[in-house]
Amino acid sequence: MSAFLDHLPEFWQGLIVTLQLTAASFAGAAVVGLLIAAMRVSPVPVLRGIGTAYVETLQNLPLLVLLVLAVFGLPEIGLQAGLQVTATVVIALYEGAYIAEALRSGVNAVASGQGEAARALGLTFGQSLRHVVLPQALRTVIQPIGNIFIALTMNTSLAAAVGVVELTAAANRVNLLEAQPIPIFVGAGLAYAVVAACAGLVTGRLERRLAVVR
């Protein structure tokens, strides 16, 4: 275990980058997911088409392909940002597709009468989505979105492949020096597990607090 403990500062730094990647890209994914989900359930066919195309495209490409394309391809057309920024944006766009699908399933789970009642009162489509449908949809999808959060946390490790020194990359570097993969990667794995466990805890609490009496 000393191979792990001797390098705590490196792991700590890597964990901080992992947490930054996770938090920023989850926030971005939430916004993207909300927009795309709204498009997918909107009454305007063009918006629905764009939403569907987005989800289908992003869900059918491996995240690693997107990361490599963004990091090495975009500079070729004059778009270059820092590695961590690029990785954050790509992960946000990618996970946004999954959040959109979770939200859409939540919207579908809300009884159609809820949206009808809102519209019958004179709320616009956007208002009925925002004040009536989505708040109820969110309650039903806390668990799936919690799972997406955990998957996103794990997916941030792919950023290591495009030069971001997060937890996995930090573990790789320490292992290069110490050649003790088992304690080093068990240590890194535990750190991921702690993040995932926290997410699970928060999800459970939110779910109990926001439960709707039906």
Binding site: A111, G113, Q114, A117, A118, A120, L121, Q136, V212, V213
Partner: peptide
């Protein structure tokens, strides 16, 4: 301007 009352009430559950 047109109020509507539904068979299944449709009160906002949340």
């Amino acid at each position: 301007d047109v109020g509507m009352v539904f068979q299944s009430f449709n009160l906002f559950q949340h």
